[in-house]
């Protein structure tokens, strides 16, 4: 199944804001080997000036990938998830995510390009808070292997 080049420019939104909670932040921080007390201990986070637990810097991808699943699940996008490998990833944080945030996400398909048996799909997901202020821009390039008959 080919990746649909016409999906460039499309936008996908999370159907409801992502509610960031302490337990998920701790679970994610443990999974990436974080040691920083501000990821686990509310008093430590507050001592650094944050309202609550601070997310590990790559936690934003959890919310971005939730928006990405809306895109991948779109049958007209033509993306076979099992054939996807990650090629590039970037985060630009306006501020750290903290527990208690309600994060909205809008994904834009930036480009779809084929090269050497791979479809390179670049998306940018803009995260914003309940006040509509920007939180993070998460850019991802996926390489979709276009193996025959897959």
């Amino acid at each position: 199944m080919p990746v649909n080049p016409d999906s460039a420019g499309r936008r996908y939104r999370l159907t409801e804001p992502y509610l960031v909670n302490r337990q998920k932040l701790r679970e994610f921080a443990s999974a990436v080997g974080a040691k920083a007390p501000a990821c686990f201990d509310v008093a430590a986070a507050r001592a650094l000036g944050y309202a609550d637990l601070v997310a590990a810097p790559t936690f934003a991808v959890v919310i971005a990938q939730a928006a990405e699943r809306e895109y991948v699940a779109d049958p007209t996008a033509g993306i076979d998830f099992a054939r996807v490998v990650h090629a590039e990833q970037s985060f630009h944080h306006h501020r750290p995510i903290v527990a208690g945030d309600q994060i909205s996400a809008e994904l834009t398909v930036v480009s779809v390009a084929e090269r050497a048996g791979l479809a390179m799909v670049t998306t940018r997901t803009d995260l914003s808070d309940a006040a509509g202020q920007p939180v993070s821009a998460v850019t991802s390039t996926l390489a979709v292997r276009l193996g025959a008959g897959g």
Binding site: A31, G33, K35, P57, T58, Q89, S90, F91, H92
Partner: peptide, 28 residues
Amino acid sequence: GMLTMGLVIQPLIDWAGGDPGAVLAYDV
């Protein structure tokens, strides 16, 4: 890939004093 990316930044955060919010941008 995101596990690798998430893991390898942690020693840098610890070196830099342990504030995860110090990371303004991160590209791999």
